[in-house]
């Protein structure tokens, strides 16, 4: 941050409200260890910082503390005292054993590979479709755009579990409207079949994420200076050319953001497969995705120590994946 030298100068000369009389700092005479002088600048800073207090308190209580607890939990192991298991449990320090086990856990990494491949399709598709919609909205008149914006954002407002239930009924081969719809075109599509489960979930995920991503990109498009468009038009560029050569490069920063959010969400895939599990139980097992496996370990198997270790590993993977994507998309133009 640049420092305004004029203000700095003023701060030295002007009397400070609330400061003790004769409060001018005497250079070189301030003994070490004394509390720094309480001037208006400090007061302003404290005041400003205090505004972040509610956030910091929440962040500490609901993020930092649980992360600390999870890290602590992940280096212990809980075992029964033996026999029938009726005699209580003993907790012992296990070091990095849980992490070592997690790093070679075939089920966990198979789940990771699954969501990774799924993300390879769903994330770019979401971005491309959202961008296309944002560009269309940007090309439309403001009033029309506002209406569509709300309609497209509606799916995002529906909670994930509810959305999944709604779609399960849409997909239902017996009572859903989609099966007869495809039949009308001579297509026999069963959204409940094992081979279709990824498509069924992917469609649902894109439907849910489209509005939000589109809104961010649309917002970014609004800040593109309009003179450039006019200049381009004068040079004879078509609307498509303007979109591809001017608008898209301008929203790249926002695309990085939406892609990252999309990747983080996709790697943590949980509620959709959890519900689709009932529909295709032979495909979607209890450890189908990393998040499902963590849930199973924590709340079914009852191995909280291992579950938290897996959570930490998942968080690291998501972090590394995000960093790579960030570097990849956000690299400087040569």
């Amino acid at each position: 941050m640049s420092v305004n030298t004029q203000d700095n100068h003023a701060a030295v000369r002007e009397p400070v409200p609330g400061s003790p009389p004769g409060g001018q700092p005497r250079s070189g005479s301030s003994p070490r260890g004394r509390t720094p002088r309480w001037n208006w600048r400090t007061a302003q800073s404290v005041k400003g910082a205090s505004l972040t207090f509610p956030f910091l308190a929440g962040f500490t209580l609901f993020v930092l503390v649980p992360v600390g607890m999870a890290l602590r939990e992940s280096v212990y192991t809980t075992r029964s005292a033996g026999g029938l298991g009726f005699g209580g449990q003993t907790v012992s320090f296990a070091g990095l054993d849980n992490f070592a086990a997690g790093l070679v856990d075939g089920s966990f990494w198979a789940g990771m590979l699954r969501v990774f491949l799924y993300a390879l399709v769903v994330v770019p598709l979401t971005q491309v479709l959202s961008l296309a919609l944002a560009l269309l909205l940007d090309a439309a008149r403001r009033r029309t755009a506002a209406r569509f914006r709300i309609a497209l954002l509606l799916p995002y407002m529906v909670p994930g579990i509810v959305a999944t239930m709604v779609w399960i009924f849409q997909y239902s081969p017996t009572v859903g409207p989609l099966t007869p719809f495809f039949e009308a075109f001579g297509l026999d599509v069963n959204f409940f079949s094992s081979s279709m489960v990824w498509v069924s979930m992917g469609n649902l995920a894109i439907w849910g994420a489209l509005g939000f991503t589109m809104l961010i990109l649309y917002g970014a498009l609004q800040s593109v200076p309009h003179e450039i468009f006019e200049a381009a038009r004068l040079d004879g560029a078509s609307e498509l050319r303007i979109a591809l050569s001017i608008k898209v490069p301008f929203v790249r920063g926002s695309l990085v953001l939406t892609s990252l959010l999309s990747i983080i969400g996709t790697l943590q895939l949980f509620d959709q497969p959890l519900l689709f599990r009932a529909v295709t139980p032979e495909t979607i097992t209890r450890d189908f995705t990393p998040a499902m496996m963590i849930y199973d370990q924590a709340f079914n198997v009852g191995n909280l120590n291992y579950a938290t270790a897996l959570s930490v590993i998942l968080a690291l993977v998501v972090g590394v994946a995000s960093a790579i994507i960030y570097r990849f998309i956000n690299r400087e133009e040569p």
Binding site: I168, F169, S172, T174, V175, G176, F192, A278, V279
Partner: peptide
């Protein structure tokens, strides 16, 4: 038939 799709289940 799955229990998740209750309307279809009852119809069946």
């Amino acid at each position: 038939q799955t229990y998740m799709d209750r309307p279809a289940l009852y119809e069946y």
